[in-house]
């Protein structure tokens, strides 16, 4: 049977966590107690070994740079068309708001009918953003977990009044994880879930009734990147916390698989 003080006080003594009075008592005790002295010696030997081994890892080259650039993406007031004006001082804000309204009016006038103004796009972006966050938080990412596009696509039959294009991109490092019904813009939409390493990408798909511009636009909201485009009569929104570069790559890979009607 070893000294009962050993487990109670030796570690604290070693770690310098005893108060002054206890530490002095312990020093006296150590001179008379072989158990405690031996244990202290062993623990010191372990500490010395760990310190000798210099087991701390240094952050690899480039990690700091990547962190800094991801901070910039997250903090940057971008893209200019959507965001920056709302953070500007008020005079600029009025001027900017006026300019945007005027510009929208002119653009809409020229390109009407059917061009969605930024306000509607902003509203959808906000809905897409909260759907994505909710899907991750509420543990309700997938209604139909499957990596097989031939399982996911038929699953939507009878649940939606359209059949969304479903394509597995596992070969390119974006495996399909499943599908889910979601609700955006006052209608039911298909949500397809892809994975990039440990990050999830939600792709929302619904019929494009407004004849939206096919141009891809990207924006970022609170660390998430969003991409919007339309193709073959569908409107697409992809959102994820993967880097903007990864998301663009994903959309680039997905595009050719969306067959024209």
């Amino acid at each position: 049977m070893i000294c009962k003080l050993t487990p109670r006080f030796v570690p604290g003594y070693l770690d310098g966590e005893l108060d002054l009075v206890r530490a002095i008592e312990m020093e006296t005790h150590l001179q008379n107690c072989g158990d405690c002295a031996r244990e202290l010696e062993s623990q010191r030997a372990l500490r010395a070994a760990l310190q000798r081994g210099s087991l701390a890892y240094a952050a690899p080259q480039g990690l700091r740079d990547r962190i800094q650039s991801s901070l910039r993406v997250s903090a940057a007031p971008e893209p200019p068309r959507h965001k920056s004006i709302w953070r500007a001082p008020s005079i600029l804000r009025f001027a900017g708001a006026f300019a945007i309204v005027a510009l929208c009016a002119v653009t809409a006038w020229q390109l009407a009918p059917g061009l969605r103004g930024p306000s509607s796009e902003q509203r959808i972006a906000a809905e897409v953003f909260s759907s994505h966050v909710r899907s991750l938080e509420a543990n309700h990412l997938m209604d139909v977990p499957s990596t097989d596009q031939h399982t996911v696509k038929p699953w939507f039959d009878g649940k939606l009044d359209f059949s969304p294009p479903v394509e597995d991109l596992a070969g390119a490092g974006f495996p399909l994880m499943g599908g889910r019904l979601d609700y955006l813009e006052g209608r039911e939409v298909a949500a397809l879930i892809y994975q990039r390493r440990k990050h999830f990408i939600n792709v929302f798909v619904w019929p494009d009734t407004a004849g939206s511009s096919p141009t891809q636009t990207m924006e970022s909201r609170r660390g998430y990147n969003l991409m919007r485009w339309s193709r073959s009569g569908f409107q697409f929104w992809a959102i994820s916390d993967v880097s903007a570069a990864d998301l663009s790559e994903f959309v680039r890979l997905l595009e050719p698989h969306i067959a024209p009607n």
């Binding site: 990690l63 962190i67 997250s74 609170r222 916390d241």
Partner: peptide, 15 residues
Amino acid sequence: DAQDVTQEACLRAFR
């Protein structure tokens, strides 16, 4: 994964 997690944690810390 350590790099990935560190980067993500820094972004969360920033938020």
